[in-house]
């Protein structure tokens, strides 16, 4: 089966990758580019742990066929740090204890990044909870995650 050359901009770095046509964007990020921060959970678009930004919008990387991502811009959790330190949202997660096992955390961070980027006004708790409808966490019960996002959005 022939490989496809696709061009991606991942965390501001232009990249050319040869992909199998049946690979997903999740496979490309983890296996070809070694970006293990994007976690594989259900592989069917239900758990949100593989959430990345595709042209600025939060999507499940497992639902994007790799050849279909050609020419697009992707941000993963590795792209959030600024000058080697955690950004404000990441620090808020640390401060509020918004993670236990950490499996869902990168997906939560990417969903929250997209959500907060769209807000012009103060953020309400219900909005945060609706924004997180596609991210499962089986440890925390969500309370501290919601608090961390609210704090980052309203500071």
């Amino acid at each position: 089966m022939p490989l496809f050359d696709i061009h991606l901009t991942v965390n501001n770095i232009p990249t050319k990758v040869a992909v199998r046509p049946q690979a997903t964007l999740l496979d490309v990020l983890r296996d070809a580019l070694g970006l293990m921060g994007t976690h594989e959970g259900c592989r069917v678009g239900e758990c949100g742990s593989c959430t990345v930004l595709l042209d600025g919008k939060a999507v499940n990387a497992c639902l994007v066929l790799a050849p279909d991502a050609d020419g697009r811009t992707i941000t993963t959790v590795e792209g959030l740090e600024q000058d080697g330190t955690l950004n404000a949202l990441q620090q808020s997660f640390v401060k509020h204890g918004a993670l236990q096992c950490g499996y869902c955390t990168s997906g939560m961070l990417m969903t929250a990044t997209a959500f907060l980027g769209e807000q012009n006004n103060a953020v309400a708790e219900m909005q945060v909870r609706e924004a997180l409808a596609g991210n499962l966490c089986r440890c925390t019960g969500y309370t501290k995650i919601v608090k961390a996002i609210l704090a980052a959005g309203n500071e």
Partner: peptide
């Protein structure tokens, strides 16, 4: 539309 799937899925 707000009932359909998740925000991530609705983006695709």
């Amino acid at each position: 539309i707000a009932y359909v799937a998740t925000p991530q899925v609705r983006n695709l």
